[in-house]
Write a protein that binds this DNA or RNA. Structure first.
Lengths: 373, 373
DNA sequence: TCCGATTTGTTCGTATGTATG
DNA sequence: GCATACATACGAACAAATCGG
């Protein structure tokens, strides 16, 4: 114990052991320690460095060096972290999820985490199995998209078990209200509102909508659609509201669209859709009926995905943060895992509600007065 | 990884992982490393210091620094035998990969495995880092798509280390020949052949092609293109062969297409493309030039992806097994991990070369004799 | 056993970069 | 924008342990 740095080490360690230092309390800065012990900065750094390695302290650049919280994950279990993060989505392959996953994966890999993916197929039952796996497994954090988020989750207890096991999680795209989680999602109500408002502003009055309503996103977008109508004082025909669910996926919308467009009167002049993918799938039907887009029918998509720019008539759509959302969620989960670097008061303010924006392209046009005007 | 000491750290760690350093073997002395990396002693010491903390090395004053024996390093690699499979692809989000991943994930989850995903961005360097992670981690098997597969891999030793560590792996979409791995991929040469043959059969003679040639898939498709031409005895203009790489991705093809189509003479009447995505991206250019598809220009895509059915003019394309390929690869890797149920004589015959098929849609039409016929 | 060369251990000084508040 | 605090890096010196001759 003759080495100076060892004496300094012992001195700091003693203060912690004597309870004079509380977890997350800042210790003297390096320059203060230099004068206290009358040594060079390097020596101080060696002492602190070893204490950091042994788990007594943690450093934050620009802020200071702090006393670690040793109350739990006693010494060894946390000394050799596996560093695993799980991402649970409803569908892995379709559509925008790959972008979200990529955004998260890029950051998490960089931080040295392993990213595991799971797929619920939008089913509560599958979600339950997966959370069980997570509990048994060795995960440090979870990014999860709630399944079937329109209905209350039967898996509440499993989520609470996650919390009990101190596995932090964030929700993306939607939330289960009961859990009040950290979330990263769009303001879908505003999105639906913007879709509809755009068409109303273009003079359309008879606007149909098609929303998938077994997840919360669709329900909120529908709410926004109704809100836009109410504000505009244009009468809203209930027959114009079409909802569908994951199971009847594409069949029902196609069928309903055909019914609407071949009706003898009150044919809609515009259509807002749950997402770009749906628009593309419906476009073929529209073409078959010989209806021109956008002259005879305006279409608005959602997500501003690659689909929006791929068809001959580029889609007017609503922006979605996609990989940015994945990145933000990843950053948040890391912060929740390592609160040392974070300011813990802001835990709740990590959540983000992304404000959607309208992107006008070629699939919408002003209403051209016909018939009964 | 820009800090010098981190580079040095990585360099030393790599040597250990590559098997160039045996346990208890002495590494270069501090002064040797100083001149090797042209840094100060301090920097070398920081690098070594961290590796000692992480358990890779140990120091003996007066004697030197030595490679630690990690073989039976309790608590570290051997903790939680947890049933993990890694899927390594070049890109996670784009295009058909999500389908492949989904196919594999569905089966592996069912078998109780955790699926981790990694992204090389088609770069050898990143691939190396990931294999390092896999070696350090606790993976039972690996499904990997080789990065930049057109060129020989500089990561041969890392792959051999996977074998040494008895971590089975299968390759998808392409292979590094040197390794003679179990593989799941398409017969890309036949695919390129079918694309071209279809157009030749339709009477086209002046067929351009655009292939991404920094991965083996593109090179093989190009080979098929040439083979079809040779068989048909139709002369092949070298100017019709356009190749590009990941870096210049979309810019070069667009530019070259414009050059080809605006040429005064010998304008191609058909174009075969590396994949459907490329076709869609080029379609806009074609429209801008006022050229009608398929009357004035036939287009053939590849992969039979969702893109093929999304545009107004549905694409003639080549089938790709997608999620089937993922599923087969997953089944194979499980069989390699648990040879108990399997008949081990068939280990080598697990590989599959998928036979592509042509799907004719609307983007190709018979050549309408003009000019010189 | 001692010597001297080598190698790691400890400590000083200085400078610049970068994140935080 | 500024001061503070940690991060990275260069140079130098002497101490302590090891090892071959």
């Amino acid at each position: 114990m003759e080495a100076m740095y060892k004496q300094i080490k012992q001195s700091i360690k003693s203060k912690i052991l004597e309870g004079l230092m509380q977890p997350h309390e800042k210790i003297s800065s390096e320059s203060e320690l230099m004068s206290q012990f009358d040594v060079s900065r390097h020596t101080v750094r060696v002492a602190i460095g070893e204490l950091v390695n042994e788990g007594w302290l943690y450093r934050e650049q620009g802020a200071g060096t702090f006393c670690a919280d040793r109350t739990k994950n006693d010494s060894y279990s946390s000394r050799l972290p596996q560093k695993n993060i799980a991402i649970v989505t409803t569908y892995i392959s379709a559509y925008i999820f790959p972008s979200i996953i990529r955004g998260a994966e890029a950051y998490l890999s960089e931080q040295g985490y392993h990213v595991s993916i799971f797929n619920t197929n939008n089913k509560h039952e599958q979600e339950k199995k997966i959370i069980n796996l997570l509990l048994e497994g060795n995960y440090d954090g979870v990014i999860i998209e709630p399944s079937h988020s329109a209905s209350a989750t039967p898996n509440l207890r499993y989520y609470l078990n996650l919390e009990k096991a101190q596995i932090p999680y964030v929700m993306i795209n939607a939330i289960y209200d009961e859990l009040e989680p950290i979330y990263f999602m769009m303001d879908d109500e505003l999105g639906g509102y913007l879709q509809t408002k755009h068409l109303l502003d273009l003079g359309h009055q008879n606007i149909a909508c098609m929303y998938k309503t077994d997840d919360a996103q669709g329900q909120k977008r529908l709410k926004g659609y109704i809100k836009a109508y109410r504000e505009s004082n244009v009468p809203l025909h209930p027959k114009n509201i079409i909802t569908y669910s994951t199971e009847n996926n594409i069949a029902k919308p196609k069928q309903e669209l055909k019914r609407l467009l071949t009706a003898k009167m009150d044919r809609p002049t515009a259509l807002v859709c749950y997402n770009d993918q749906l628009v593309l799938q419906l476009m073929d039907e529209v073409r078959e009926l010989g209806i021109r887009i956008p002259d005879e029918l305006s279409l608005v998509g959602y997500d501003d995905s690659m689909f929006a720019e791929v068809s001959e008539i580029k889609l007017t759509s609503i922006t979605h943060p996609k990989s940015k959302l994945g990145l933000d969620a990843a950053k948040a989960i890391i912060q929740m895992i390592r609160p040392n670097e974070a300011n813990h008061q802001s835990m709740e303010s990590l959540s983000k509600l992304y404000e959607p924006e309208l992107v006008v392209r070629q699939s919408t046009a002003a209403f051209r007065g016909v018939a009964d005007i």
